[in-house]
């Protein structure tokens, strides 16, 4: 495996991570280093383990029945499966946005404040600020600022997706995971989400499963090519998309299979 390792301290490190659903391996011996302030795009054909990889990073994979993990995942050098790590706290540090937006059956505002209110008491003023800053960062504030008490389900699909991003940003996470966040979106909504992500990169680590190779190359600083649970190639995105080292990566990005 060709693993271009950027020097410096990594935010997230995966050491020999494998994941099984029952006897079926979904990920095989993944080694990956993700740094702060960069967007890592994980791409590959369906069933290659991309979503599983994301869910391991904030231990949502714990919810999978008969799921089994091998290897270790380090966040700031600390194994996230250590007994003294609170999975609740981990999930606020590593937030995730799903492919299909699931607004909770609450108002727009309550969706954004849901995560913060789970943790500790906050003044209304603080919450107001958090709602505005989160929605602004998710490029949704201007569209919803006058209708915050309305049900979140009244929003369009693209707006719901950005609301789900805002909901995660309100957790004030360090790492943001996005699982095909633009799969159901029109090009304009997609552009808005991508712009939001590029701005968020300044203060977060972002791991995204893009919905196609083009998106991976547009916004990824690094790119990882997964194939049948195997990490085929990982490195600087530009290089992977122009001069891939592995012939399988080349075949995939040039559309010879997929």
């Amino acid at each position: 495996m060709n693993n271009t390792v950027t020097p410096g301290k990594a935010k997230l490190v995966l050491n020999d991570v494998s994941f099984y659903y029952g006897d079926q391996p979904a990920l095989k011996q993944i080694n990956l280093r993700i740094h702060a302030n960069e967007i890592v795009a994980i791409f590959g054909p369906a069933m290659s383990g991309k979503s599983t990889l994301l869910r391991i990073l904030n231990r949502l994979s714990d919810l999978a029945e008969e799921g089994r993990l091998e290897g270790e995942v380090l966040l700031d050098g600390k194994n996230i499966h250590d007994p003294d790590v609170s999975v609740i706290q981990l999930r606020t540090r590593v937030g995730i946005v799903f492919a299909v937006p699931v607004p909770l059956p609450l108002s727009i505002r309550e969706n954004v404040t849901y995560g913060p209110l789970l943790r500790r008491g906050r003044s209304k003023g603080e919450l107001d600020d958090l709602v505005e800053s989160s929605l602004t960062a998710a490029a949704l504030w201007d569209e919803v600022k006058d209708r915050l008490p309305e049900p979140a389900t009244a929003l369009s699909g693209g707006q719901q997706q950005r609301l789900c991003l805002a909901r995660v940003l309100a957790l004030e996470p360090e790492v943001i995971l996005l699982d095909e966040p633009c799969s159901g979106l029109d090009p304009i909504s997609t552009m808005k989400v991508e712009e939001a992500l590029l701005a968020l990169k300044e203060s977060h680590s972002i791991v995204i499963v893009p919905h196609n190779v083009q998106q991976a190359s547009r916004i990824g600083d690094k790119a990882a090519f997964l194939l049948m649970g195997e990490l085929v190639e990982y490195g600087v995105a530009e290089q992977i998309f122009t001069r891939p080292k592995d012939p399988r990566t080349d075949d995939y990005i040039t559309g010879r299979f997929g």
């Binding site: 609740i88 606020t92 699931v102 849901y114 995660v168």
Partner: peptide, 15 residues
């Protein structure tokens, strides 16, 4: 009640 609500709650750090 859709299972996805439970996953969202967990993903936002809810017990």
């Amino acid at each position: 009640v859709p299972q996805s609500f439970r996953v969202v709650n967990a993903s936002l750090g809810g017990t």
